[in-house]
């Protein structure tokens, strides 16, 4: 079975899993705990495509009509 790469779809934003150091920097930048980020389920197609595990933080780079490019972060939770 061929697997469809969701990131090839134009409506799916780019996303990457952050490294430990990057997460640490992000936490310091916003002064928050990881759980205070918006959550995303591990079962979300984006997490599955990235292979993100619970506890990871993913960075999402979206197209934005007002800002051109907007960056968001998601904390991966189980389920």
């Amino acid at each position: 079975m061929s697997k469809f790469d969701i990131f090839k779809h134009e409506l799916v934003p780019k996303a990457v899993v952050l490294s430990k150091e990057e997460v640490e920097e992000l936490r310091r930048l916003y002064g928050i705990r990881k759980e205070q980020l918006p959550w995303i389920r591990r079962s979300d197609p984006m997490c599955r495509a990235l292979g993100a595990k619970p506890g990871d933080v993913i960075k999402i780079i979206r197209k934005s009509p007002v800002a051109g490019e907007a960056i968001a972060y998601r904390y991966v939770v189980p389920w």
Binding site: Y30, I32, Q36, L37, P38, V66, A67, A70, A72, Y73
Partner: peptide, 15 residues
């Protein structure tokens, strides 16, 4: 109120 982030920049452009 409990510090959960909803948007990382208000309205994505902060305007």
């Amino acid at each position: 109120t409990n510090g959960l982030v909803v948007q990382f920049k208000y309205g994505e452009d902060g305007v």
